[in-house]
Simulated assay, not measured.
Amino acid sequence: MFERFTEGARRAVVQAQEEAAGLGHEHIGTEHLLLAVLARPEDPAAAVLVEAGLDHATARQAVRRLLGEGGDAQALASIGVDLDAVRDAVESVFGAGALDAPVEEAEPRRRGWFRSDAKGRRAPFTARARKVVELSLRESLRLKSGHIGVGHLLLGVIREGEGLGAKVIADHGLDFAALRRAIEAKTG
């Protein structure tokens, strides 16, 4: 199935992993897929949400409100330390990615997008997030697209309809049917 993913959709899946890690979450859920789509506002599917008033910053704030931040980030936030502000300050002086840990070689192992590596460094996809990816394929087939793009991932989030990604959209007051029509018009 992954051979059908466009480069943009592949980047969105990787971005979802980065969104989860950035929030300190130990899973990759539908909310992280939504954030990944919104991280690329130039994509036509993301533009539909942005034009409706749901941008990356707004969605990220909603995810934080719903889930909080995992690990030490939550403890530091409770005493007034904003890790995003700290990261921004450090990266402005030392460059992007200055606080990122070096990537180590993983031991050979059965791998895939939905599993962690041998050392457990990648968060697993939730069942709902896996369902969204499956639904994105179904949306692509239904629309006779021949590929799975970012828009299909977003349609999968909407079609799944019960994960936190869908909740963020619904809580923003957006109508799923109207979004679906707008995304389909831009996705094809």
Rank of each mutant, 00 (worst) to 15 (best):
L153G: 06
A101I: 03
R181E: 15
L141E: 10
V86L: 15
F94Q: 11
G29K: 01
R128Y: 10
I169Y: 01
A123P: 03
R111G: 08
V14M: 06
R138E: 14
L164Q: 09
R180W: 07
E69M: 08
L99A: 09
G163D: 09
G146Q: 12
A9D: 01
I169R: 03
K144T: 14
E42R: 06
L155W: 04
T30F: 06
L34F: 03
T187P: 00
E107I: 03
D175Q: 07
A21K: 09
H25V: 10
A52N: 08
F2R: 00
D72Q: 09
G156F: 04
E184C: 04
V90D: 13
L154H: 12
A21G: 09
A106S: 13
F125M: 04
E184T: 15
L99V: 01
R40H: 13
G165V: 04
A45Q: 02
A182S: 14
G151P: 02
K167L: 15
V150N: 03
A12F: 03
L135M: 08
G68H: 08
L83Q: 11
E18P: 01
A106G: 05
Q61S: 10
G95S: 08
L54W: 04
E3G: 08
G24N: 11
T187Y: 00
R159H: 13
R87Y: 09
G112E: 01
E69H: 02
A106V: 12
V93K: 09
A57H: 11
R4D: 03
I148Q: 00
L67G: 09
A177E: 15
G149E: 02
A39Y: 05
A182V: 04
A39R: 10
L154D: 10
L76V: 06
H25R: 08
G53V: 06
I169H: 01
G53E: 12
L155H: 04
S140A: 14
H147N: 12
V157E: 02
L164T: 05
F176G: 07
E26T: 07
